[in-house]
Design a binder for these strands. Structure first.
Lengths: 208, 208
DNA sequence: AAAAAGTTTGACCAAACGGTAAAAATATTT
DNA sequence: AAATATTTTTACCGTTTGGTCAAACTTTTT
């Protein structure tokens, strides 16, 4: 009884890799089995269907992301330091997991309902997130919609990594090192760009 | 001879819709045939393989995008007006084609080589694009890396539309109208955000 | 050590898929 | 109108894919 730990973990790790790289549609149960060094039947023994295996992997992934978001909401940290911390953390994570952004964008489009159950289970709560942020922005004199603030930063961090092949080819002529150096340089330049923009919102009258 | 026009166009339109929504892997020849109101064999009569059909559709798409990019590079238009024009044009296009960003991000990851042949054929030339832009930015006193300038704007325009299901659910609690209104409001707010940021770059010393 | 429970394997299946071949229908040329 | 070329349909094929089943092997319980 209860010796299943090793095998199940090998499967989970293999499935995570294949799913993230190929997506639900592109992933093959055979490939996952091979990568885990086991039989395809054994895969169905542990996770009866592909759908169930996928749901399991995705749910774990979302939980990890939810936890990380939570950690970013500590009080007593200035807006600038939050921006800096967020940008650095996520660029590092995404550089190590190049397929993650596309994977999430994809699956969330392919099957929204199933995905959002995962979000709900991970207790990702936007109101707990936006309300304090809005207060802090106002307290530090930045009169910007907190949604714009968050979404603009998210965009500038994630998009260049999600669109890696495009940038790498079109902007950097296939020079992988130049691309990676550029992405790393964005740790500074995004913070700079955001803080310059925020400076402009200091001068604005309070709106509605 | 040469009556093939109608059928071929019906196929192209159906294929475009299915490919953009489901991607190359998710698309089914049968679904394309059904949507075009024809037989599956007839589909293979016009475009022998799925790969060929996909290449044809993708190539047309890239060409249209390349043309639009070209139009945005006219001289004699201020940076602010270029930002404004670009943001408005692309938000409108992407609102009408919700699956386009994810589709391109996806296919470019799935099969880069084939895709970049398409880019090359569409004569998308980054150097012709970045050099004049850098000059104009400097001429107007904005000491910012033109790559940051372009990529940040691209990010802020495309990402919230590529991640529509996520934003719609997490930020707007499934309220589609609230989401769409917000995206439309970004036509102004992105320009504002960018111009505020650019203001900061005016004060910077010229860097290498 | 026998029985029972859990794990792993190999052989196999039905459905879905991309694709083909030849007949049938339609249009074009002579 | 007969012959020719083109377009469309019908029926089918080989592979791939997710999934099953019973047998074999291993571990745990009695």
């Amino acid at each position: 009884m209860e010796k299943e730990l090793l095998t199940e973990e090998k499967i989970a790790e293999a499935a995570r890799e294949v799913f993230i790289e190929k997506g639900m549609n592109g992933a093959r149960m055979q490939e996952i089995a091979d990568k885990a060094g086991i039989n395809k039947s054994l895969l169905h023994y542990y996770f009866r269907t592909k759908e169930k295996l996928f749901a399991f992997i995705f749910s774990k992934l979302i939980h990890r992301i939810g936890d990380r978001l939570e950690n970013l909401m500590q009080e007593g940290v200035s807006i600038e330091d939050k921006v800096k911390g967020y940008v650095e953390l996520y660029i590092d994570i995404l550089l190590k997991n190049p397929f993650l952004p596309n994977f999430i964008l994809n699956e969330v489009t392919r099957n929204p309902d199933a995905i959002f159950e995962g979000f709900a289970a991970a207790k990702i709560n936007p109101q707990k997130f936006f309300a304090p942020l809005e207060n802090q922005l106002k307290a530090e004199g930045y009169n910007i919609d907190p949604r714009d603030f968050v979404i603009n930063i998210l965009s500038m961090v994630i998009f260049p990594l999600a669109g890696r092949p495009i940038l790498e080819h079109i902007v950097f002529n296939g020079d992988k090192k130049a691309y990676k150096d550029y992405i790393l340089s964005r740790k500074k330049s995004i913070v700079e760009f955001v803080m310059f923009a925020l400076e402009g919102y200091k001068k604005l009258e309070v709106r509605d």
